[in-house]
Design a binder for these strands. Structure first.
Lengths: 200, 200
DNA sequence: CCGATAAAAGCACGACCGTTCGCATCCTGG
DNA sequence: CCAGGATGCGAACGGTCGTGCTTTTATCGG
């Protein structure tokens, strides 16, 4: 890896941390240059515009998420164990050993983009979120074909419900500082699994 | 109401709309002055600082929410009917006839404040969110004392679950433009009610 | 209807924003 | 080891930000 690629990668890592804490709006070239001990113009040269910087940091965050959450979870056995493992890693990604300092990168970004005008950055985030919802639904489908879950359960509904638990967890834990947030999230997930599991 | 109070109120209404769409970070004095056809300095004179403007708009949004969602819902009969009515109005507040143009004011603000340094604005938002979580839990408690819900159900857990449904609804509907978002939210709520209702 | 007072405008400031450009300096392949 | 391109710096630009002043205009009670 050449010197340029190296700094570029380091810059994007720091940028992802900043965005996770302050949102895309809080990512400023001057601030980023300070943190990296680079001049504004020197840093700017790596990305020809701010939009490309934002695009690159979204890409970096998506890679990070795949690396830390998705790929390991897909090694778990199909069905319920995989669903459990994925959920556990999602929790740790939001707050914990897998997390960026500001919590889930996409939770920070999604809220500020939901009413933004269309554009490359928004489109990329929406694409990532849709892909992720599909992934959760597909993990659930492996549980259907393994006979772990009720055949009439809707994978898309499951993905919607899991997303809700995670968002509420992020909200309670980060903003409200509720010490019982993790317990509530795990309780909610157990209740969800219970509801979609085959009757015994 | 004097002329000054009138302008101030109109400014705060417009500010609440802006914040609901773009977050507190998108609320700028110049933009607000343009929208109101006022000069920057003329508008600024109503609030001695930007922080006081932010504080005032949060206050205004909280009043609006109480007016449109909480107070009407509390007129419904105690217990399950009140819980249903409250949830329905919450959905309409997030997207619908009760909503600001950018969706739920607090959904926009909460995400960008979750890792912000403490301060009057953040404190006020956290207070409002805590009060609201308590309100939802208390509505659930009326259902407990009416015998509608299982005595072993946890009101705080219920509030956590409802918040998750609403956040996921906001996310799916606004960002991902999922046409089935409302169906999923209502399905999730019915399942939640089912789970906490007394067995028959 | 007029004079005190409230409301809004006009203008200027320092700070930071993204961006450009010319110049120094480092790395690196031949 | 040296040439030449990759990499980074400094200064400057037009804009917008929040925030003070002073001045003009509108409101409203006596």
């Amino acid at each position: 890896m050449s010197k340029g690629e190296e700094t570029r990668a380091a810059v994007l890592d720091e940028a992802a941390r900043i965005v996770s804490a302050t949102g895309l709006g809080g990512l400023t070239i001057g601030l980023l240059a300070d943190r990296m001990q680079l001049s504004k113009s020197g840093l700017f040269a790596h990305f020809k515009s701010k939009e490309q910087l934002q695009l690159a940091v979204v890409e970096r965050a998506a890679d990070l998420y795949t690396e830390r959450v998705v790929r390991p979870a897909l090694k778990a056995p199909r069905g319920e164990p995989r669903a459990r493992d994925l959920f556990d890693r999602q929790l740790r990604w939001a707050t914990g050993d897998l997390a960026l300092p500001g919590g889930c990168f996409f939770a920070s970004v999604a809220a500020e983009l939901d009413d933004a005008p269309p554009g490359p950055v928004r489109d990329r985030v929406v694409g990532a979120e849709r892909d992720h919802a599909d992934l959760v639904a597909n993990v659930f489908r492996t549980g259907l074909s393994e006979g772990h879950f009720r055949p009439d359960a809707d994978p898309e509904q499951y993905a919607f419900d899991v997303k809700g638990i995670l968002l509420s967890y992020h909200h309670s834990g980060r903003l409200l500082a509720d010490p019982k947030a993790e317990d509530k999230a795990r309780t909610a997930f157990e209740a969800l699994l219970q509801a979609v599991s085959v009757v015994e």
